[in-house]
């Protein structure tokens, strides 16, 4: 690692101020960032640790909405249970030690194309709150490792409308245990949303044909006849584009069955 300073603000305001330093970078749980720094692929001057910001910690439920502080760990989300499919998803990110450090804000800010949380946020139509604004999930994810966040902007919280039914199915990339393909299906009164992670070169995306079919008939059989194009799917040593496209459909069907 190149050397850097570490700032440990305790309020969002202080964190934002610290982020104003040149080449400052926010540090959530560090479970992706620190390995990246070890490879010397980034050289921030200052890391602004968000772990100590009290107002970014914890989970509050307000009716059918769940608000999760940006610095809340995967382990905390996993233990919560107010939104069972989301907790189940969190309980399978990384491993227990990673879950004790990694945060939802960090995961969404990084937007790894194989991460789990982006699928939940997009399928749930979540709202990403930052120190300056609120961003709808549909506007937030802008491609692999690319988001609507501006420089210095910090995810302070994520709000999830709790669906009537939901499920996440992850087919793991066997080495990293990230998603080779992960599908989050969420059923709301006004329709079904399906978000896919791990599969596309564009990062997380909504499978709108499946959403339409499932909104009409929330059953795996509704997917019969649909197919997923392999165009623009990721191809690597763990699976071809065609295999990933195939898995999208299989995992969607399983998620629907599990949610039904």
């Amino acid at each position: 690692m190149y050397n850097f300073d570490v700032e440990t603000p305790v309020t969002v305001a202080d964190a934002v101020a610290a982020m104003a330093a040149e080449d400052a970078q926010a540090l959530g749980g560090g479970q992706t960032l620190i390995p990246t720094l070890k490879q010397r692929l980034a050289s921030p001057s200052t890391l602004v640790s968000l772990k100590g910001v009290a107002e970014m910690q914890g989970i509050t439920r307000d009716g059918d909405s769940l608000r999760i502080g940006g610095a809340t760990t995967h382990a905390t989300v996993a233990a919560d249970g107010s939104y069972p499919a989301l907790s189940a998803l969190a309980s399978h990110i990384g491993d227990p030690a990673v879950r004790n450090r990694g945060t939802i804000g960090g995961s969404l800010a990084n937007n790894d194309p194989a991460a789990c949380y982006p699928a939940a946020a997009l399928a749930s139509g979540a709202t990403i709150a930052t120190n300056t604004r609120e961003i709808a999930a549909d506007d937030y994810f802008q491609g692999m490792f690319d988001t609507a966040l501006e420089e210095g902007e910090i995810i302070t919280a994520v709000s999830f409308p709790i669906p009537q039914a939901a499920n996440y199915q992850k087919f793991v990339q066997p080495a990293s245990r990230f998603a080779l393909v992960g599908v989050f299906v969420a059923k709301y009164a006004d329709g079904v949303r399906v978000a896919v992670t791990g599969a596309s070169n564009e990062g997380v995306f909504r499978w709108t044909e499946a959403e339409a079919a499932l909104s009409a008939n929330f059953s795996a059989s509704a997917l019969e006849g649909l197919s997923v194009s392999a165009d623009n799917m990721i191809a690597d040593l763990h699976g071809s584009a065609g295999y990933r496209a195939h898995l999208v459909k299989v995992m969607t069907g399983r998620a629907v069955t599990a949610a039904s």
Partner: peptide, 19 residues
């Protein structure tokens, strides 16, 4: 799986890709 590409780059050079 130890996988080299045609340029001799080791694709499975960490536990993220070597299972």
């Amino acid at each position: 799986n130890t996988s080299y590409d045609e340029n001799g780059q080791l694709l499975s050079a960490s536990y993220m890709d070597y299972t």
